[in-house]
Amino acid sequence: MTSILGIGECMIELSSAGDDLWRQRFSGDVFNTLWYARAHANAEIETKFHTAVGIDPISDQMLAFAESGGIDCADTPRIADRRPGLYTIHLNGAERSFSYWRDTSAAQMMVREPGQLWSKVSDAKVVYFSGISLAILPPEDLEIFLAGLAQYKSDGSILAFDPNIRPHLWNDTKRMLDVTTKAAALSDLVLPSFEDEQTAFGDATPEDSAKRYADLGADHVVVKNGEAETIHLQDDVISGFSVAPIEGVVDTTAAGDSFNGAYIASLMNGSTIEASIRAAQRCAGNVICHKGAIIPFDALGLKA
């Protein structure tokens, strides 16, 4: 079967349930993308996740939740002295900010059993990772990871990368930019968000971001830009796709992740670029009208 493999982090998500109560869920940028890819992918496309977790009950609960959404977590490394990371969502209207506790996150150790990882990479049609996947790895593991992606991906498979630039995860800005650039240069599909790119690289327009990544060697680039046009670049042709107005926005968490998942799955289903971007925009629009990163499949308005 054809498969998409996501490599990254899943965390414990806590969001306000009112009256000093917290609602526990699971989330992480790569995991979120896989969740929405699974929702949109045809039945014959497998969705797989490589991370690392602890041996504690909440790690068991996390893996069970992923499996309940049709995400295969087979051969997940279990790290005895580690636990899942945790974050809280703070909302100001619909805009969100986060507080994180991930110093002892098991996901940081996800390259420590590379045989399992490279076997999954070599079997996958699409391998998806993010700038957060890179930022949380110890430096030596990061170098092993990037080299392994290039070495072990199969002929004809696609490396898909969302830079998802988070400066607070990096001790050195130059290194952050260098690693992001190196990862993008390995990738076939790059899915940046313009706000991140403008802040980190000083790009003046979304088109500038798209051209910079294409110049590094990406086959095609899709630049997300909130309510503004989504920009697509392939074969030196730039196209813009307007975003339909969304009413009832309550939480923009995972807007970009859900876009990525729907876009990749739609392409794997055989849809055109335009149809895939429209599906991704609709998915993100549905997600931001709900609280939290993960919403049930039946809330996406997809045909059964």
Rank of each mutant, 00 (worst) to 15 (best):
K182A: 15
T205M: 12
V127N: 09
S130H: 03
G256C: 01
C283H: 00
R25Y: 01
G28Q: 06
G6N: 09
N269M: 10
R25L: 11
R96G: 09
I158S: 00
F194H: 05
F26I: 04
M268D: 06
E44D: 15
R166V: 03
F201L: 11
M11D: 06
P245F: 07
T88G: 13
D236T: 07
K174R: 14
E195K: 12
S239D: 14
A284M: 10
K125D: 15
S271G: 01
S59R: 11
T104W: 13
A41R: 00
A185E: 03
N164D: 06
E247N: 14
S59W: 10
R282E: 08
H220K: 12
E13A: 04
F31P: 10
M11T: 05
S99P: 11
K211W: 12
K174Q: 13
P296Y: 01
Q24M: 15
A275S: 12
S157G: 09
S239W: 01
P139F: 01
F65W: 14
L91S: 03
G240W: 07
G301A: 08
A280P: 12
R166A: 03
A279P: 11
G270Q: 01
N171I: 04
D235V: 02
A284G: 14
D81E: 14
I132R: 01
K125T: 13
T51A: 10
H220R: 10
S187N: 06
S266N: 11
M62L: 15
G285Q: 07
V221A: 07
L146R: 06
V287A: 02
I144T: 09
D75S: 11
I132N: 05
F241G: 02
N269K: 02
Y36E: 09
G54M: 11
E274F: 00
S122W: 08
T47C: 14
Y36S: 11
G148V: 08
F49Q: 11
A80C: 04
K182R: 15
D56F: 07
D257E: 10
A52M: 11
C289R: 14
P206F: 04
S271F: 09
E113H: 12
G148T: 04
S130N: 05
D56Y: 01
G285S: 07
A183F: 03
A41V: 02
I231T: 13
T230Y: 01
A185F: 02
A204V: 09
P167V: 03
H40K: 03
G301E: 12
A124D: 07
I238F: 04
V223M: 05
K48N: 14
N164S: 02
T76K: 08
D235G: 09
E227G: 03
V222W: 01
A275W: 06
G285C: 09
T253F: 07
F129P: 05
C10L: 14
A244R: 14
P57W: 06
V222A: 07
D203F: 11
R282C: 04
I273P: 02
L14Y: 08
A255D: 03
E247R: 02
K224E: 00
D203V: 00
E197H: 00
D172E: 12
D219I: 10
P77I: 02
S119C: 11
V249S: 09
V249E: 05
I165K: 08
